[in-house]
Amino acid sequence: MRFLRKILNFIFFPFRWIWKKILAKHTALIEKRIKREIEISLSHELRTPLTCILAYSEMLAENVKSKENIEAAKVIYNKSKEMVRLIDNLIEISVLDFNPQSVYKTQINLSNTVIAAINKFKFFYEDYDDFAVFSEVELNIEVPGNKKLFTLMFFEILNNAYFYKKPSEKAIISVSLKQSNNHAILKIRDNGIGIKDKFKKRIFERFFRTENGDTADTSGMGIGLSLVKKIVELFDGTINLQSTWGEGSEFTIVLPTKKQKHFANILRKEKFDED
């Protein structure tokens, strides 16, 4: 009997193995679809009410008369902008975690994207005068990338420089972009509080924040820089940090300007109806 069972096991083993594989693939596909549905509804359901808060507070600030009310409307406006940023980062990081193949990769003008991110940053903090951004951008550098993700990535580094500025000083942020051989090199330098050596290795970890004593009254979830690293790596780039505690930090991002071989195959053609 035992012998017969062994023979049967031996005969059916390949079928069981194939069945398990099919089942696992099917479950993974269902999970992926559910996660994608969650991303889409999160994105829609959170953004719609925020549109009302953000837009009405902006219009209120333009129309109220008393100084106190203007201040109140501006606080609502600025805090809701901050909330939008955090939600966007959470959504993007979940897309990159669960569905990186849904990210479109095309040839983009990196120079224009960097300039757009600087403008977005200036507009985001238009009510504040405690920072200055200087830029030296070589024009028309093209790289394989994603305009939306790259704008978000550069914005997050600028934001990081501003968040970790010295409390009593103006944040001076310098941005330079140039092309060298087959690479685009972007450097973002600041005069902020810098990062202690013991934290440098962990700075790109998700949810990692330096100890309370080192932060300059910052808020956030520790997602920004991990998102930046994920985006850089998705496009075959590298990111490096040089920082001196008390003097400031410099992030260097290097991106290939030539299309990598595997890029051509991962463009996904999705139909809206299918989603």
Partner: peptide, 11 residues
């Protein structure tokens, strides 16, 4: 739109 995703922009 609140549906700001790559495939909606492409569409």
């Amino acid at each position: 739109t609140a549906k700001d995703m790559d495939f909606t922009r492409k569409k």
